[in-house]
Structures are given as structure tokens and as C-alpha cells.
Design a protein around this nucleic acid. Structure first.
Length: 363
DNA sequence: GAGTCGTGGCC
DNA sequence: TGGCCAAGACT
């Protein structure tokens, strides 16, 4: 009996779940039919104009891309016109829009369609992917909008909308989590007019379910929305913040005394732990340069805790090369200089280091 | 998988 | 002000 109940209960909840998905999709499509913006590439399902708009709108706002779309259509009414253009012509039209590889790929794809497909756009997601500059998103957009193929588009809007409605906490900056969003989007994607539904999700994400200050008061999907229920709109989607390289200024002073060089062993919990370096004056001011010591430097003895021979110094050079600081080798060659100053920027995985080798003083 | 590519708008 | 984001794709 327990087995039967479980089975029945599962069936019921599955039906209920399907019902919610259908209601969700219907609400969204209805909203789109009323609220969608009038945009030039929405006047037809011509693959050429849809494709052109999708390329232009990659990482680009509608307001910024629209004039460019109009200029392209005016100058190149058909894909064959575009295919016959020179790269300079295309780049000139693209001027100011950014991401210029899009323009080069646009021309390459136009020539692909013209040469390999007889001027007719390929009509399936799989074939579209073969064209230059067309990735998973753009292929899905064209296939669904122009050819009614039931493939979900996954763009920034869809990530956000789906994460909030279904409470998906997978990190959208990680490639593997894309699958989770594809499955969710596929489940709510209707059989009829998948292109309209895809555009509805993006339009809704752009106008209502915005990244910041989403318009939940006006939102017709709030009754379906996990984030609204939990008041977690600002927490979704989860996106790992890009680690910004920190700037550190390392001012090294090289002090020698006869055969000895003053050095310190670096502590744990920081870069180069356990390695030796010169007397260090680190500070956050990137414009800081210590004055060059000339002559006697008796005042700077305090923090120097180790004095090593040139033999040990060589060991340290070897280790520091592993840290990609090859300039230290040049420093070794210059050890006989009395005073020198080098300003260098070194990039490490999580930090930018400005390394100043300011002084070498014999005392 | 992480970096890179660009410009403009927002708070 | 600066960080984040915008209908991603490519290397």
C-alpha cells in the first residue's frame, strides 16, 4: 500500500507541477504579447535580420544596438549584400559598438551562408552552431524564433529569471551549472511558438525581473516565484564575484655588508611563504617610492632579522624564479651596483604587485 | 575553466 | 566613484 500511495502521490505532484509550468508559460506569453517593445527586428521572422540583431545585441543593450541594426539593414538589405562587402566596410559600420570580433565573424558567417548554403540560412540549432560567431545562445535564438525549433535560449536574463523563480542556487559563472538551467528552461518551454516564449523570458528579464531593484510589485509571475516568496531577489542568481587583482607595492632595499646580504624569510599566510626576500617596505600607495639611500644608512637596521651569504642568496633566486619573478635574476647581476632603482609590475593569480627595487647600499 | 574582448548606463 | 551589468563567443 505504501508503494501505491507513493506512486499516486508522485503522479499527482507531477501533474500539479506540469500545471504550474503551463500557467507560468501562459502568463509570460500573455504579458509579452501586451508589453513587448516594438523593435525593427521583430517585424519579421527573416533569419537574416534576426541573426543580425542577435549578434549586435550580444552583451549590448537594445538602445545601444538598435541604430547599428538599422544602419546594417539599410546598407546590406540581404545576406548576399553583406557577404560581398569588404571587412573595412563592415568594421566601419560597427565602429563604436565594441567587441569587434563580432563584426569579423559576422562577415565570415555571411560568406559561409552565401557560399556553403546557397544564401539560405541553415534552419536547425545544430547547423547554426557551425557558423562563425554563433554559439549556443544565438543558435537557439535563431532556431526557435525563425524555425520553431523547441530549444531554450540561455542568456543573462534567463539565468536570472529561472534562478529566482525556481530558487536555483547553482553558480551561473560555472559552466557545469548551465545544464541545470537548460533543464528548467526546457521544462517550461511550450511546444507552440517557442521563439515567442524565449523572447518573452528575455524581455521580462530586461524590463521587469531586472538585476537590481526588480519590479516585483508589477510582476505577474510573483505567485510562481521562489525568490519573491523568500524575499531573496537580491541573492539570486548566485554569481561568484570575479576576484579583482589587488595592487600591492613592494619596496625592496638591498643591504650588503662585506659578504653578507640582509634578507628576511617570508611568513605563512601570504605569497612566497617560506621564501627569502630583501628588506621589505610594503605599503598600499602605488605612487610611493622611497628615497634612494646614499651613503650611510645606519637608521634602517631594526627590522632586519637575517643576514645571509651569497650562497644562500642563490638558493632564493632559484625559488623566486618559480614565482615568475625573473627580474630578480637581473638584480643578481647588478649586485655590485651601489644604487639602482627599478619599477616593475608583476601579475600573479590574485594580485598585482608593484615591485620596487629601490636601493642597494653597502654599509 | 578562466581570460579576453568594449562601450555605455545604472545606482 | 567604481563596480556591476548588458540578447556571448572565442581562445
Amino acid at each position: 500500500m505504501a508503494f501505491l500511495n507513493a506512486k499516486v502521490s508522485s503522479t499527482i505532484s507531477k501533474k500539479a507541477s506540469n500545471y504550474i509550468e503551463i500557467q507560468l508559460a501562459a502568463t509570460l506569453i500573455h504579458w509579452y504579447s501586451r508589453e513587448k517593445r516594438i523593435l525593427p527586428w521583430r517585424e519579421s521572422r527573416n533569419p537574416y535580420s534576426v541573426w543580425l540583431s542577435e549578434i549586435i545585441l550580444q552583451q549590448t543593450r537594445v538602445a545601444q544596438g538598435t541604430p547599428y541594426f538599422n544602419n546594417f539593414i539599410k546598407k546590406f538589405p540581404t545576406i548576399r549584400d553583406l557577404a560581398n562587402a569588404s571587412e573595412q566596410e563592415v568594421l566601419k559600420l560597427w565602429e563604436g559598438l565594441g567587441y569587434y570580433s563580432r563584426a569579423r565573424n559576422l562577415l565570415a558567417a555571411a560568406r559561409q551562408v552565401s557560399d556553403e548554403y546557397g544564401g539560405n540560412f541553415p534552419s536547425t540549432y545544430k547547423e547554426l552552431l557551425k557558423l562563425k560567431g554563433i554559439g549556443p545562445y544565438t543558435a537557439a535564438a535563431i532556431a526557435s524564433i525563425c524555425f520553431d525549433e523547441r530549444v531554450p535560449v540561455i542568456d543573462g536574463n534567463v539565468f536570472r529569471l529561472i534562478a529566482r523563480i525556481f530558487g536555483i542556487t547553482a553558480d551561473i559563472s560555472q559552466a557545469p551549472s548551465r545544464k541545470e538551467f537548460e533543464v528548467a528552461a526546457q521544462k517550461i518551454l511550450p511546444i507552440e511558438a517557442p521563439g515567442d516564449f524565449n523572447q518573452a523570458m528575455m524581455e521580462f528579464g530586461a524590463l521587469v525581473c531586472k538585476p537590481f531593484n526588480p519590479d516585483c510589485q508589477r510582476c505577474e509571475l510573483s505567485s510562481f516565484c521562489y525568490a519573491f516568496k523568500e524575499n531573496a531577489q537580491h541573492l539570486l542568481p548566485v554569481k561568484r564575484k570575479k576576484i579583482k587583482a589587488q595592487e600591492r607595492v613592494l619596496n625592496y632595499h638591498v643591504f650588503t655588508h662585506k659578504e653578507l646580504v640582509c634578507m628576511n624569510k617570508r611568513a605563512k599566510g601570504d605569497i612566497w611563504q617560506g621564501l627569502w626576500d630583501f628588506f621589505l617596505d610594503e605599503r598600499s600607495d602605488s605612487n610611493y617610492f622611497a628615497h634612494e639611500y646614499k651613503g650611510e644608512v645606519k637608521a634602517v637596521y631594526g627590522p632586519i632579522s637575517h643576514k645571509l651569504t651569497h650562497q644562500n642568496l642563490n638558493v632564493w633566486f632559484h625559488q623566486i624564479e618559480i614565482a615568475n619573478l625573473t627580474k630578480f635574476q637581473e638584480l643578481a647581476n647588478k649586485l655590485e651596483l651601489t644604487i639602482f632603482s627599478i619599477h616593475e609590475l608583476v601579475t600573479l593569480p590574485k594580485s598585482k604587485l608593484i615591485v620596487n627595487y629601490l636601493t642597494r647600499v653597502k654599509f
